[in-house]
Simulated assay, not measured.
Amino acid sequence: MTSTPSDIGAVDLALAPELITIEPGALTRLHAALAERASREGLLDVAYRIVETPVGRLLLAATERGLVRVAYEREGHEAVLATLAERLSPRILESPERLGEAARQVEEYFSGRRTAFDLPLDLSLSNGFRRTVIQHLKDIGFGRTESYAEVARAVGNPRAVRAVGTACATNPLPVVVPCHRVLRSDGSLGGYIGGLEAKTSLLRLEAVAA
C-alpha cells in the first residue's frame, strides 16, 4: 500500500511527541558535561552562573585567574556577558561548578555568616586609578564606611574625589569589593551600581551583623 502525502503527514504528527520527548534534567547534564569538557581542554575562558540573593539575581563570572565580574540584574546580564565576550574572550559558558565557591561565600555573606570574602580576584576590567581605588575598597572592613574624600586621600590623590566616585560607580565586582561602603561626606548614600535600595540593604545587613 502506498502512503499519500496526507498519510505521511499524519504519521509524522503522531510520532512528533515521542521524537521531541526529553528526559527531565538531560539538557542540564549535557550542558554540565560540555562545560566540564571545555574547561578540561582549555576552551573555557570565562565561566558564569546566576545566584539568587536578597538584592536580586547576581551574575558571577570568573576567569582562570579569579572572579572577574559580579553584575546586578538591573545592569542586564545578557549585556554584561556580551561585554565580557568583547573585552575578555568569546569563549564564555555557564558553569555553576566553577563558581561553586564564590556562590557559597556570597550566600554566607547574605546570611550573616561571612564578613569578608576569600576569593581570588581578576581585576583586569579595571585599570589605572580605578584599579587603585578598587584595591583600596577591599580594605574597608565589614560594617565600616568611608567617604569619597577619605578614599581619595587614602589612595594619595585628595583632589580626585569625583574620580573616586567614578571608580566606585564602575566597580566590576560589587558586593565582593565593597563599594557600597563608600558614602558622601555628609553621610548620604551617593550612587551605586546596584541601585540605592540595594546599597541600603547591604549597609543595613552589615550594621545588624557587625
Rank of each mutant, 00 (worst) to 15 (best):
Thr53Met: 06
Leu59Thr: 03
Arg37Asn: 11
Gly42Phe: 10
Val51Pro: 01
Ala35His: 02
Ala35Met: 07
Tyr48Ala: 04
Val68Asp: 04
Pro54Tyr: 09
Pro54Gly: 09
Leu43Tyr: 08
Arg37Leu: 14
Asp45Gln: 12
Ala38Lys: 07
Arg57His: 12
Leu43Ala: 13
Val55His: 01
Gly42Leu: 07
Leu59Met: 12
Val55Glu: 00
Ala62Met: 11
Leu43Trp: 09
Ala61Lys: 02
Pro54Asp: 07
Leu60Arg: 03
Ala62Val: 03
Val51Ile: 15
Leu44Ser: 05
Leu44His: 00
Ile50Glu: 07
Val51Gly: 06
Tyr48Gln: 00
Arg40Met: 11
Tyr48Lys: 05
Tyr48Thr: 01
Glu36Asn: 12
Val68His: 00
Ala38Phe: 12
Asp45Ile: 04
Val55Arg: 00
Ala62Lys: 13
Arg40Ser: 15
Ala61Val: 06
Arg57Glu: 14
Gly42Gln: 11
Thr63Lys: 10
Arg65Phe: 09
Ser39Lys: 14
Leu67Cys: 11
Gly66Met: 03
Arg57Ser: 09
Val68Thr: 10
Leu34Gly: 13
Arg69Ala: 13
Val46Gln: 00
Leu60Pro: 03
Ala35Val: 10
Leu67Gly: 03
Arg37Ala: 14
Val55Ala: 03
Leu60Gly: 07
Pro54Met: 01
Tyr48Arg: 01
Leu44Glu: 10
Leu59Asn: 02
Ser39Cys: 11
Leu44Gln: 02
Thr53Glu: 04
Val68Tyr: 01
Leu67Ile: 09
Ala47Cys: 07
Glu41Lys: 10
Arg40Tyr: 08
Val55Asn: 02
Leu43Arg: 13
Tyr48His: 14
Glu64Pro: 07
Val46Gly: 01
Gly66Arg: 05
Arg49Asp: 15
Val55Leu: 06
Gly56Gln: 05
Asp45Ala: 15
Ile50Asp: 12
Ala47Met: 10
Arg65Gly: 08
Ala38Val: 06
Ala62Asp: 08
Gly42Thr: 03
Tyr48Phe: 15
Leu34Ala: 15
Thr53Arg: 02
Leu34His: 12
Thr63Trp: 10
Gly42Trp: 08
Glu52Gln: 14
Leu67Tyr: 03
Arg57Tyr: 10
Leu34Phe: 09
Gly56Ala: 02
